[in-house]
Computed example of a mutant assay.
Amino acid sequence: MDVLITGANGVVGGALVDHLGDEYDLTLLDVEDGEHTDVVADVRDYEALRPQFDGQDAVVHLALPPGTGGPEDRSLGWSGAQRDTLEGIHNVTEAAVDARLDSLVFASSNHAVGMVEVRNEPAVYHNDPDGSRDEGVLAGHDEPHRPDSRYGLTKCYGEDLGRLAAEAHDIRFYALRIGSVRRPEYDHPYGDAEAGVEAGRWERGSDAYEEMAARMKGLWQSRRDCAQLVARCLDDDTVEWDHFYGVSANDRRWLDDLDDARETVGYEPRDNGEEWDGPPA
């Protein structure tokens, strides 16, 4: 299968190259040349982008124009970066439809429903750690859009545009509401806590450190699980449009539709944040 990946130099792009490079014929596109770049093109430039879709079976859209902002930006004003992000989403979707690709896998985000976390922190970070799943804050498969930021809002828009493309045109669309995927050195649920130590934001073992680890034990998706979920979507031929939460099989996850992902596309995550009681030695 021939697969185009946009934003291939990013963290998730690296995970896909590492774990799927031998399974698919990948074309790696990014706005700048880098370790994972076959084609330099800007998703905001349709004329430069469109030819890269010829001969492809599917596209995985990861690219995020610079300056888009993060989940901490809850302002309501319009921004140029927001415009750029939406333009990139439009261009990739239009090119995929015009080139008659079989499927489009869109890197959405947990921030498309992130207000579930914002309105329930810090309790959500200690969500049912015994794995019984009978209690706690849960965002199931039918959770409506609840963006926590302008960043999350752009992800909601991308999901809705993808649904329009799928239902109005002959393309399968998969939105992955990714939790937290990290670079190889931080690919564990203590990764963000350790990064905070290295940046001088807190000390190892402090309350802030432990709270960050607790958060990641719910949101973490290992690199190999992330790649597996993308692969299951690429291999699927049954879905018209759907979304799945990109998390590992974490006992305390609050993004809770793994049964849907298992039954629909065969996703079987191998990792669980609760299996870790500290960072790697």
Rank of each mutant, 00 (worst) to 15 (best):
A15R: 04
P147R: 13
F106V: 03
R183D: 07
E135S: 12
E117D: 09
G140D: 07
H19I: 04
D260T: 08
L62Q: 00
V31L: 04
D73L: 14
R183V: 12
D25S: 06
D22T: 14
Q52V: 09
L76T: 06
T37D: 05
G205Y: 11
E121S: 09
L29T: 03
W254M: 05
R172S: 14
L219P: 01
R44E: 09
V105T: 06
T6M: 00
H145T: 08
A166I: 10
V247E: 10
W254I: 03
Y151D: 02
S79R: 02
R224H: 10
S132P: 03
T27H: 01
H145W: 13
T154D: 15
E203G: 11
H141P: 00
E211S: 12
H19A: 13
G77V: 07
E274I: 11
A227V: 13
L101G: 05
L4A: 01
G69K: 11
D237S: 15
A48C: 12
S75K: 15
G7Y: 02
L138F: 13
E167G: 02
S75Q: 15
V3I: 14
Y174S: 01
L164K: 06
D2G: 08
A213I: 03
D257Y: 05
V92Y: 03
V113P: 00
E94F: 03
G196V: 13
M1K: 15
G246Y: 04
D207F: 13
V12Q: 13
A81G: 14
D242V: 05
K217W: 11
V247A: 09
E203C: 08
S103K: 13
S180H: 09
N120F: 14
D98Y: 02
E268Y: 14
Y151L: 04
G67R: 09
M212E: 13
W276D: 02
L229K: 10
L62A: 00
H188V: 01
D22Y: 14
P144C: 10
S222H: 12
L62V: 00
D18E: 15
M1G: 11
D130C: 08
D142K: 07
G70Q: 15
T68P: 05
D54V: 10
V118M: 12
T85H: 11
D25G: 03
E117W: 14
G152Y: 05
D134S: 09
V197S: 06
G80D: 10
E159Q: 08
D148G: 09
H19T: 05
P122G: 04
R204G: 02
G55P: 01
E268W: 15
D33R: 11
E211T: 06
R252C: 07
